[in-house]
């Protein structure tokens, strides 16, 4: 019984991390139609920034937010100077982001070496809370809490604010949105920066739990892909449900069938592709 509970808590925590990773990916992919293959790199580079800040004695939350801001800046620059010129051209966008992911991976190896970095869990988040006779590690719960708060904030932003309305207008019909005075190109830069920041924030949140090591980017990118294929592109609810689904499958798969954990991850994707190719919560694009 206890094993199952531990697994469930771990699954929910991983789900929270995956949401932070894939929410940005889903927005960038679904709204801007940019297949951002450097999203795993954002996660890894953000995590490395975070551990470096922590190493200098910075407060955990401050480090996570600072890393998010740094990544937002990098993301905005990549979008502004490189991706903007390629708008609408999928293959060049893919190759460009892939090229950047190789550059980032190699630079990280150069700067932070091949050894894994695992910061200690911040003191005020250590330990466990006891409820109904069982212990829950606080840090895992905090990850989930943060993910849920960010999910709600994103949903409020996209669905209920003026900014969100402008983003949706820009996506539905960019030329008309431009005509009524919405600066679509700046909005897209903003979304890209936001996606990068969320991934970096997730990377720092995950660092005490997953640790940071070379190849983390290549492990996270397919997870983000699977989540988005499952949930449907551009759907935040889809990203949330998909993340927790994958979180559970990953942890339970690894505990029950360690050899086949990867294949198990891929089964729901197959089912969704066969039965509902637009994803669980995706809209059919004509």
């Amino acid at each position: 019984m206890n094993l199952w509970l531990t697994l469930a808590v771990n699954s929910i925590a991983l789900g929270g991390l995956l949401f932070l990773l894939s929410a940005g990916f889903s927005l960038i992919f679904g709204l801007m139609r940019i297949p951002n293959l450097m999203h795993g790199s954002f996660f890894m580079l953000g995590a490395y920034f975070g551990v470096t800040f922590l190493d200098r004695g910075m407060n955990f939350w401050l480090a996570a937010i600072a890393s998010g801001f740094a990544m937002a800046l990098i993301g905005a620059m990549v979008e502004r100077f490189f991706l903007k010129r390629l708008s609408g051209q999928e293959l060049p966008q893919v190759l460009l982001t892939l090229g950047f992911s190789f550059i980032i991976a190699d630079l990280c190896l150069l700067i932070w070496t091949g050894d894994p970095w695992q910061p200690t869990t911040p003191a005020h988040l250590r330990g466990a809370v006891q409820a109904a006779g069982m212990f829950f590690p606080i840090y895992r719960l905090v990850i989930v809490g943060v993910a849920v708060v960010i999910a709600i904030a994103l949903w409020l932003m996209v669905d209920w604010t003026r900014l969100g309305a402008m983003i949706r207008a820009g996506v539905d019909d960019a030329p008309i949105a431009r005509m009524v005075g919405i600066k679509v190109s700046q909005l897209f830069t903003l979304i890209f920066a936001l996606g990068a920041a969320l991934a970096a924030f997730g990377g720092v949140m995950g660092a005490p739990y997953l640790s940071v090591y070379p190849g983390l980017d290549a492990e996270m990118l397919p997870l983000a892909l699977i989540v988005v294929i499952l949930g449907g592109t551009g759907s935040l609810l889809g990203a949330l449900v998909g993340s927790f689904l994958i979180g559970f499958l990953y942890n339970f798969g690894q505990a029950l069938f360690p050899d086949l954990a990867y294949v198990i991850l891929f089964l729901p994707m197959v089912l969704v592709l066969v039965l509902r190719p637009q994803g669980l919560f995706g809209k059919v694009v004509p």
């Binding site: 390629l86 190759l95 460009l96 892939l98 090229g99 992911s101 190789f102 190699d106």
Partner: peptide
């Protein structure tokens, strides 16, 4: 040792200058 870096730079350069 930095083949990955070179590979990435080639990709970015090709896309930016010789699509």
């Amino acid at each position: 040792e930095r083949w990955n870096l070179v590979l990435g730079v080639i990709f970015v350069a090709i896309i930016s200058f010789m699509p």
